[in-house]
Computed example of a mutant assay.
Amino acid sequence: MTILVWDYLQEYEKERGDILDAVQQVFSSGQLVFGKSMRGFEEEFAAYHGVSHCVGVDNGTNAIKLGLQALGVGRGDEVITVSNTAAPTVVAIDAIGAIPVFVDVREDDYLMDVGQVEAAITPRTKCVLPVHLYGQCVDMEPLKALCARHGLVVLEDCAQSHGARYNGLLAGTMGDAAAYSFYPTKVLGAYGDGGATITSDSVVERRLRRLRYYGMEDRYYVVETPGHNSRLDDVQAEILRRKLRRLDAYIAGRRAVAERYAEGLGDTGLVLPTVNQSNNHVYYLYVVRHLRRDDILEALKAYDIVLNVSYRWPVHTMSGFAHLDQEAGSLPVTEKLADEIFSLPMYPSLSPDAQDKVIDALRQVLAAL
């Protein structure tokens, strides 16, 4: 049996009746786009977070892109973020003509080093985009205070942090707006692409609704301002609506897997995830470190265990962002982590037997190094 870093088939077998009923409900409703399911999910996702508005979109990248535009970020504006993230975070910034400005991450939790942000601010800085990476939140209290002093807007990237908390506050509720991905691997994942941006600012919400629908507002084919076609379709919305009711259970399952890893691997020499005292980690990924990462990954293939690295190539080192002129070595912690981190299988339906196989294989491989 091959063990993958992520698999949905066991979860699907358990939830198949509900998932197929969701599809049937939408298909028989007579409205496949902008229907009751999408409106219902928007209302319920906003309510889960205790915010006023949720605007469903077609994917997480556009959730960031439209979020930035709705907050007034545009061409030539600088957006401070991190390079240790999935490329779409930066792709979205670049897509609107804004300029990504990178700060390094902390070595213990791999999150934005808030202490470096102020030095990165220039007269062109408009926004800070903290990435709540791997399932826990950036240190938001000092970041919010800093942004308030400098008049900067904050867009939270919550693609990996559904249900995570910082000092009791849900990820996505601490900035001016927050962007989510519902890609199938996520803590709250669809059966295809999907995304959303949430806010309690009614002006931002109105802009978001225009932007996702060509720039139209009240009348079809009357464009108020140029926009996009970025709608969340009702099939995915209804599936997400059903799965949202199970989100806390999914998180509990992920935490149980994380506890089993901590017990089984705590004495092996792997650097296991650090959970900040202020955070409730939801373990979108279980990221560990070792100096001989690549040797470990290669050796695990003999055990039919296939893992991945999130992320092997920091965004600032990618050829597609060479125009940013970010020198190698400028983000030393990020670049060091890229050579050492890798992700263990992490999903709520991962069986104890499969997890024990991963733990036993890792112990054998590490002992042989």
Rank of each mutant, 00 (worst) to 15 (best):
G329P: 03
V275E: 12
G227F: 10
F34E: 07
V153N: 12
A148Y: 08
Q277E: 11
D233G: 04
Y283T: 03
V235S: 02
D248I: 01
V105H: 15
G72P: 05
G168L: 09
A120S: 08
A63D: 15
L350M: 15
Y347S: 13
D233V: 09
N276W: 06
V282S: 10
A328V: 05
V365L: 13
A299N: 04
I341E: 10
V275T: 13
R165Q: 08
L291N: 13
A237C: 03
I305M: 03
I198N: 07
S37E: 07
M174S: 14
L143F: 11
D139P: 09
L152G: 05
L331F: 14
I305E: 00
A46L: 04
L133A: 14
R124E: 00
L146I: 12
P100C: 02
M38Y: 00
V128P: 06
D21K: 03
Y250S: 04
R260Q: 12
D77A: 06
R124M: 00
G175T: 13
A256E: 06
T225Q: 08
Q136W: 12
A299G: 01
I239A: 09
D109Q: 05
Y220F: 09
G172D: 09
L369Y: 10
G74E: 13
I99Q: 04
D113V: 14
G50W: 00
V90D: 00
R231G: 06
Q25R: 10
D304M: 01
W6V: 11
H132L: 08
A367N: 05
E224W: 12
V33Y: 04
P88V: 10
L285E: 07
A299D: 00
Y283I: 01
G320H: 03
V275N: 05
Q116E: 05
R75K: 15
A258H: 04
L68E: 08
E327Q: 04
V5L: 11
A159V: 14
L366F: 00
V204Q: 01
I296D: 00
Y134N: 12
L324V: 03
D18H: 01
D21T: 02
L111R: 07
S278A: 11
Q236T: 06
K243N: 13
F342Q: 07
L155F: 13
R292H: 08
S181M: 09
Q10N: 09
C158S: 15
Y303A: 01
Y183C: 11
A86Y: 01
G215R: 14
V26L: 13
R219F: 15
S349V: 14
G97F: 15
